[in-house]
Design a protein around this nucleic acid. Sequence first.
DNA 1: AGCGGTTACGAAAGACGTAAGGATG
DNA 2: CATCCTTACGTCTTTCGTAACCGCT
Lengths: 303, 303
Amino acid sequence: MSKPLDRMTLLETFVRISERGSISAAARDLQISQASASRQLKELEERFGTQLIRRTTHSLRLTAAGHDLLGDARALIANWETLFEQHAGTDGEIKGPLKVVAPIALGQLYLANIALEFQIAHPKVNLEWHLEDNPIRFAEEGCDCWIRVGPIPDDTLIVRELGQIERLVVASPAYENAASMIMPEEVSSLPFVALAPYEGGHIRLYSDQGQTFELKPGTPVVTNNIFSVRKAALMGVGATILPRWFVEDDLNQGRLLHVIPTWHAPELRIRAAFLPARHQPKRLEAFLDAITQGVREIPGIKV
Amino acid sequence: MSKPLDRMTLLETFVRISERGSISAAARDLQISQASASRQLKELEERFGTQLIRRTTHSLRLTAAGHDLLGDARALIANWETLFEQHAGTDGEIKGPLKVVAPIALGQLYLANIALEFQIAHPKVNLEWHLEDNPIRFAEEGCDCWIRVGPIPDDTLIVRELGQIERLVVASPAYENAASMIMPEEVSSLPFVALAPYEGGHIRLYSDQGQTFELKPGTPVVTNNIFSVRKAALMGVGATILPRWFVEDDLNQGRLLHVIPTWHAPELRIRAAFLPARHQPKRLEAFLDAITQGVREIPGIKV
DNA sequence: AGCGGTTACGAAAGACGTAAGGATG
DNA sequence: CATCCTTACGTCTTTCGTAACCGCT
């Protein structure tokens, strides 16, 4: 007499269709006939009174409304799954898919270890490990956890502070006078390699005693790739600012010099973000614990 | 071959049964046969593999599992409703039920105006206005917005700061020397009336210049009721600390004196709390706007 | 006895898959 | 013309209400 057809299922089908870009592919995934998938999408559109996906016979495209819905639908489905995990008399086992997005360099060099050890400790977790420095569309992409250095430009997310990243002024030992530098003014004489998102025209430095100094170096090279910054520094293109975790080895091996060691650039904040909800899935809680713990062991990251 | 019966409906029925304490009453509410309601509850229990409600033929009682589920179920249902409101091609009208819990005294004297004007401005909103000073079980009670002075002891909620409540030392003009008091030491000579949750054995006072003073008065009366504190102060039982909004009239009318006016007790924080979610219902967004705005107009509340 | 919850049964509604039809690259 | 979405149709599942049954107060 009213409206059967599970609402949550309707959303799940819609999400699957959106991400596969095809009704038939989604139907195959969901083990239903392609006619069923088509009908479910239609039904959802009727209930919302809006077209969600524009079909052009051989290609699908989300409408604006569909686009908007996608993130919310994913979040709601995740909420249901968490609720079910929490209340269905399960054995509290940690399992299921977990999509994590992390910064590229830190992800490669340090976080991957943490994440992979986590996966080994919880073999039933299906880890999807994406490295990406740029902002993402968290909910739309079906992400579970986003680790980022710098701001989280999405106010629909919950943000957890993980630590502060110490950053040093470094330069190639080829700069013979660099080793003896003590005051930031002296650094101004060196050419500078800038990492695009963090350093603009001027760079503020802080001393251990809390003094500040505005550095306005020439920047012959600007790049958004931290590996290139390091390479440039190693090759002696100029001085630069890099996180301690990234240059710790270079400093120990003498490939780079820590210039004006009593001064440093502002710390960057590393954070984890995830969807707002009353409870997070167990696998996410566990992963956040592992990351929070693991980050403490990275050189130059303080809580 | 599959399992229809809308999951969300199952939860809705469960919540309705829980709050009515009766399957037949819930069935009436939901316009389904009582047999249906009974079956749906059974179905939900089977899916979760747990008994949620213990039936003793003539009375229902939530099991522990049922109790736990109730809050989460309510939150999930609210999420669905918000999603539907946002994406169903509605006209963006502000309507629907809105349950607000607010502190008793502030709620009576100031917030009621704000809330009632809000309701008049949005007649389709069904406002449920509860005044309660003690902590509540937010989600279990089906609350939408909790306004509280002091901490929000529920870390599953999102908290928004609304302002700081200025508090003054006041006393009856019957204390003839009170009017001339300037330094907190002098106040120690007066008996003190304490408001239970906020003032313990000692009270820290701050001067406008940032000095602090630890007041350790005798407290012949301790009460948890702010109206009684005021009454006691008016009757000359002793000095006390009260929020400016509560005594503004008394001060203007000369019924109370503002003692040592360059000193004050620590501000209390007033906050609004609500369920975590990607989006809040329009009626809640609008209500929060109204409250945030309205609170600014209350004497002695600063952002 | 009366009220409330559960279970059985027949009827009605709805969702599924198959298959045919239509549009596009 | 091959692919993919939509629609029509017949079947089967599922859910509903009615009603009988059972247990408390």
